[in-house]
Simulated scan of single mutants.
Amino acid sequence: MSEATIFPTVDPAHLAAVHAEAFETPWDAAALAELLAAPGVLAVVEDDGFILVRVVLDEAEILTLAVRPAARRAGLGGRLVEAAVVRAAALGAERMFLEVAEGNAAARALYARCGFVEMGRRRGYYSHADGRREDALTLVLNFPR
């Protein structure tokens, strides 16, 4: 297993390949490179997964968390979230937000284990390839002081 790396030593093509394995509607290398170039965005990357987070003042937001299917259920997602929380807190964030598809039980369980709690809902936020819409749950983690 590789050590996690923090942006800027990130290859958008590698992230796009991982994202394509992890999501029905993946982000391409150009979109990921654009995000990585945006102010306040950081990445924590391992060979089989990564997390992108944006930090603005005292708030952080998980933009995406992707883990290759073959590497799931081995703790990688939790390690990535934990590393992102530590880095975001070091940059001044006091809480972290994210949206997760209501039907994504595995991701919801991961975030619950990491201490995130539901604070809202975005109706029809996600659209699927088959045309169906799915609600997003907005979750928050308040960092310990």
Results as ranks from 00 to 15, higher is better:
residue 57 L to E: 14
residue 86 V to P: 09
residue 54 R to W: 04
residue 65 L to W: 10
residue 48 D to C: 10
residue 47 D to S: 14
residue 104 N to P: 06
residue 92 G to W: 10
residue 98 L to N: 06
residue 60 A to V: 01
residue 48 D to L: 09
residue 48 D to E: 15
residue 77 G to A: 14
residue 79 R to C: 01
residue 38 A to R: 12
residue 55 V to F: 02
residue 93 A to V: 08
residue 101 A to M: 09
residue 52 L to G: 11
residue 68 R to I: 08
residue 76 L to G: 13
residue 76 L to K: 05
residue 39 P to H: 07
residue 87 R to P: 04
residue 39 P to G: 14
residue 47 D to I: 02
residue 73 R to A: 13
residue 63 L to E: 07
residue 67 V to M: 05
residue 39 P to R: 11
residue 73 R to W: 04
residue 70 A to N: 05
residue 104 N to W: 04
residue 53 V to M: 00
residue 97 F to W: 12
residue 56 V to A: 14
residue 77 G to I: 07
residue 103 G to R: 07
residue 37 A to K: 03
residue 72 R to N: 02
residue 67 V to K: 00
residue 102 E to R: 15
residue 97 F to M: 08
residue 50 F to P: 03
residue 64 T to W: 00
residue 85 V to M: 11
residue 84 A to C: 07
residue 51 I to M: 02
residue 66 A to E: 00
residue 76 L to M: 14
residue 77 G to D: 09
residue 50 F to G: 06
residue 62 I to R: 01
residue 54 R to T: 13
residue 90 A to N: 09
residue 65 L to P: 03
residue 41 V to P: 08
residue 77 G to C: 11
residue 62 I to K: 02
residue 52 L to S: 12
residue 51 I to E: 08
residue 95 R to F: 11
residue 100 V to M: 07
residue 83 A to T: 10
residue 102 E to N: 08
residue 62 I to C: 04
residue 102 E to K: 12
residue 73 R to D: 11
residue 67 V to S: 03
residue 54 R to G: 02
residue 64 T to Q: 08
residue 98 L to H: 00
residue 51 I to G: 13
residue 37 A to I: 04
residue 46 E to S: 11
residue 77 G to T: 12
residue 62 I to Y: 06
residue 48 D to H: 15
residue 39 P to L: 08
residue 78 G to M: 01
residue 72 R to C: 07
residue 74 A to Y: 02
residue 103 G to D: 13
residue 75 G to K: 01
residue 64 T to N: 14
residue 83 A to L: 15
residue 41 V to A: 10
residue 91 L to Q: 15
residue 55 V to D: 00
residue 61 E to H: 09
residue 55 V to L: 05
residue 41 V to R: 05
residue 72 R to A: 06
residue 90 A to Q: 15
residue 60 A to E: 00
residue 74 A to H: 12
residue 37 A to C: 08
residue 68 R to N: 11
residue 50 F to W: 10
residue 49 G to R: 07
residue 75 G to Y: 03
residue 92 G to Y: 07
residue 92 G to C: 10
residue 91 L to Y: 03
residue 53 V to N: 00
residue 71 A to Y: 03
residue 69 P to S: 06
residue 41 V to K: 07
residue 54 R to I: 14
residue 54 R to A: 12
residue 84 A to T: 08
residue 39 P to S: 14
residue 89 A to M: 08
residue 77 G to H: 13
residue 85 V to E: 14
residue 78 G to V: 00
residue 86 V to I: 11
residue 55 V to Y: 03
residue 66 A to H: 00
residue 77 G to W: 09
residue 93 A to P: 09
residue 37 A to F: 02
residue 89 A to V: 02
residue 87 R to W: 12
residue 44 V to Y: 01
residue 56 V to I: 13
residue 43 A to F: 07
residue 40 G to V: 11
residue 76 L to H: 09
residue 85 V to C: 15
residue 70 A to D: 10
residue 38 A to Q: 14
residue 37 A to L: 07
residue 55 V to W: 01
residue 71 A to G: 03
residue 65 L to F: 10
residue 49 G to H: 10
residue 44 V to F: 02
residue 81 V to C: 05
residue 83 A to I: 09
residue 48 D to F: 03
residue 63 L to K: 00
residue 72 R to W: 03
residue 72 R to P: 07
residue 78 G to N: 02
residue 80 L to E: 01
